[in-house]
């Protein structure tokens, strides 16, 4: 028998090694779970890394209040199945408390606001390492981030002061108040995620697969007609219509767009992903379209 690993097995072993390193070297780790496919794969790998123990750290969800109901349902179902502890940080509560102020525009995105809630939850629970499903192929600023990415007392990322990261020897030392964001899926690409979902028969929120939905076009993107997003009155190009769509990423309903697709299984999505000509964030995320450096700026502020 040849001693060869497939690329997926290699990536999975690498991710498990990173998760175990977190369990071994940190006192209060947690896993950031959005209900999206990357965090689903991450949680799945965490169960493998800790097997046959239950995942010994909590799962943190930052609830913007603008979530897809299918995603919240999926979150609760996974948390129950794996018997992990769920910690929810509510952006709405922070708004109600007056800690953050929402832009007075109907359907304003809460993308930037969630950074405050995330940092508050991290601080209140004194987490010293947060596992996240970020991938380097997602975006140019992410491509330069370390697997173990140090954040200062304010949760900020300083791209120019990153520690060199050599071999698979991770330097986890930090001062009190600082914490690490840890990205075990750094080296995974979108296609790897789908191949792994298929191989492992992972469950995902239903919105990832083709379904009928009432949508409208807004600056070239297909947004769902929902409580926070409606076509503007009198704008002819924003006529609502019903279409067969799926989502490539899961974010807020206000800033996540659908793509027209009939792919209803991971295998069909893999075929589509292999030939698609638009990146997943470019196609579907209004939050990354503001400028070439949108992600870099948000990361500097403490965003994931």
């Amino acid at each position: 028998m040849a001693h060869r690993l497939s690329h997926l097995d290699t990536l999975a072993s690498e991710a498990i090694h990173i998760i175990r390193e977190v369990v071994a070297e940190f006192e209060r780790p947690a896993l950031l779970f959005s209900g999206g496919k990357d965090s689903a794969v991450l949680l799945h790998l965490a169960t493998k890394a800790c097997w046959p123990q239950r995942v010994p750290f909590p799962v943190v969800h930052v609830d913007t209040g603008h979530n897809f109901p299918e995603v919240l349902e999926y979150r609760d179902q996974q948390v129950n199945k794996l018997e992990v502890r769920l910690v929810v940080g509510s952006v709405q509560e922070d708004i109600d408390r007056g800690s953050i102020v929402e832009q007075p525009v109907p359907g304003a995105t809460r993308n930037r606001l969630q950074t405050f809630t995330l940092l508050r939850v991290l601080e209140e629970n004194r987490y010293d390492a947060i596992l996240g499903g970020g991938r380097r192929d997602e975006e140019k600023a992410r491509a330069k981030e370390r697997v173990f990415s140090l954040r200062d007392e304010f949760g900020q990322w300083d791209p120019r002061a990153q520690r060199p990261e050599l071999w698979n020897i991770y330097n986890t030392r930090h001062r009190p108040g600082e914490h690490f964001r840890v990205f075990p899926l750094s080296n995974w690409a979108e296609l790897d995620i789908w191949q792994y979902v298929e191989e492992q028969h992972l469950e995902l929120p239903s919105i990832y697969f083709a379904h009928r939905r009432t949508v409208f076009r807004h600056s070239g993107m297909l947004l769902a007609v929902g409580p926070w997003t409606q076509p503007r009155d009198g704008v002819a190009s924003e006529q609502a219509f019903e279409a067969t769509v799926r989502y490539r990423t899961v974010g807020d309903m206000t800033c996540t767009a659908a793509v027209e697709s009939t792919a209803s299984t991971p295998a069909e999505i893999i075929v589509e992903t292999a030939v698609t000509r638009v990146s997943e964030r470019g196609a579907t995320r209004a939050d990354d379209r503001f400028s070439d450096a949108a992600m870099e700026d948000r990361k500097r502020e403490g965003y994931f």
Binding site: K140, A141, R142, A143, K144, R160, Q162, D292, A293, E296
Partner: peptide, 17 residues
């Protein structure tokens, strides 16, 4: 990937592709 790199036309850090 980073703003300083685009502005100066240089690469500062290891980028993974």
């Amino acid at each position: 990937g980073l703003r300083a790199e685009r502005e100066q036309g240089i690469t500062i850090d290891v980028a993974y592709r």
